[in-house]
């Protein structure tokens, strides 16, 4: 359906995540869009900038908050063919983190490379 409606050419969708999880609902509801959007067979990438990198950290335990821990869902993205996850290097380092601290394999990129990735998109969704 989407292939036809878009003239057979998939659009490049980028989801930009800049907020930490749990303090607000944006991270969770953004991920819900990614999961629904995966069915549309577009060219999907996720960018994690600034506090957005906190969404991906290992060891999240939300039992005390009585809210859903949505970090394991990032591991399921691969099943939806969403495999392009870009994390800003400077954001990780500034927060004392490295790729090894994250729940999924990501591509750690420089700000320069991230800017190029953003520039190449058709649709940028930020929440």
């Amino acid at each position: 359906m989407t292939e036809e409606s878009a003239g057979g050419i998939a659009k490049k969708f980028l989801y930009v995540n800049r907020r930490a999880p749990y303090g607000s609902i944006y991270g969770l509801e953004s991920l819900e869009v990614v999961l629904i959007g995966a069915a549309f067979e577009q060219d999907v990438s996720l960018a994690f900038l600034g506090d957005g990198v906190f969404q991906l950290t290992k060891g999240q335990d939300t039992k005390g908050l009585e809210v859903k821990n949505f970090s394991p869902t990032f591991r399921a993205l691969e099943d939806y063919d969403v495999t392009k996850l870009y994390v800003e290097k400077e954001a990780l380092e500034a927060r004392g983190l490295s790729a090894a601290d994250l729940v999924v394999p990501v591509e750690v990129v420089s700000a320069q490379r991230m800017a190029e990735i953003m520039e190449a998109q058709d649709v940028i969704l930020s929440f």
Binding site: V16, R18, Q121, D122, I124, S126
Partner: peptide
């Protein structure tokens, strides 16, 4: 411009 990025 080809796309819009909103820095919310």
């Amino acid at each position: 411009h080809n796309a819009v990025q909103s820095w919310l």
